[in-house]
Amino acid sequence: MDERPQEITSLVGREVYTKNGVFVGEVEDLKLNLDVRSVTGLAVGSLNTELFEHEARQGQGVVVPYRWVRAVGDVILVADVVERVRDPDDEEEIVA
């Protein structure tokens, strides 16, 4: 049995924090590139209203690029850049 799909689905429901310990949100879904069978982003909901006031107020989520992920364990740690960088013109994805 291939363990890879189980690992990928196990990311759903995990809390996401920055390396500084700031809560970002909770993984609701994954953005995948099926051609190369890789995760390209984390669809995060239940957002920290201090970081994402507009999105949280409207019930939206954000997609954090997977390249920002620094560690995966009981929680997911992402680069601190998520605290500082936000593209207000892109409501769907945080862009560096």
Rank of each mutant, 00 (worst) to 15 (best):
V22Y: 08
L77C: 05
A96H: 13
E26G: 01
D89N: 12
V62Y: 03
V44P: 00
V62C: 04
E93G: 00
L51C: 05
D74T: 09
T40S: 11
E93R: 10
A43C: 12
V75H: 11
S10N: 14
P65L: 04
F23N: 04
E3D: 14
R14L: 11
V63T: 09
E91H: 13
R14K: 15
V44W: 06
Q58N: 09
D87K: 11
E91W: 12
R84W: 12
L30P: 00
R86F: 15
V24N: 06
D74R: 05
V22H: 06
D2L: 12
L77Y: 11
N48S: 05
Q60L: 14
T18M: 10
I94W: 00
V22F: 06
E55W: 07
E92W: 08
E26L: 07
V24M: 05
Q60C: 07
R57V: 07
S46Y: 12
L32D: 01
R86L: 13
E26Y: 00
N48Q: 04
K19C: 08
L30N: 00
A71E: 13
E7F: 14
T18A: 07
V64N: 02
I76A: 03
R37S: 11
V75N: 13
V95C: 06
R37C: 04
V64D: 05
L77V: 03
E50I: 01
R84D: 14
I8Y: 11
V78P: 02
S46G: 08
V39G: 04
I8G: 02
H54S: 08
I94A: 00
R84I: 11
R84V: 12
R70V: 12
E28M: 08
A96Y: 08
E55K: 10
V44N: 06
E3S: 14
R86Q: 07
L47N: 01
M1N: 08
K31D: 08
Y17Q: 14
K31Y: 03
R57K: 14
K19H: 09
G45M: 09
G21E: 03
T18Y: 07
G59M: 03
V78H: 00
R57P: 01
V16R: 04
E83L: 03
L42E: 09
E91D: 14
R57E: 15
E15W: 08
I76F: 07
E15Y: 13
E53I: 02
K31F: 01
N33Q: 06
N48V: 00
R37F: 15
E28F: 15
E92Q: 08
T9N: 15
D74F: 04
L30S: 00
V72N: 03
G13D: 06
N20D: 13
V27R: 01
L32S: 00
E15V: 09
L11P: 04
T49M: 07
V39A: 04
L77A: 09
V63C: 03
A96V: 13
M1D: 13
A79D: 15
V75K: 12
R86V: 04
V36G: 06
E83Y: 00
P65S: 02
R84F: 15
R37Q: 10
P5G: 10
E28V: 02
G59R: 02
W68N: 01
V22S: 10
L32H: 00
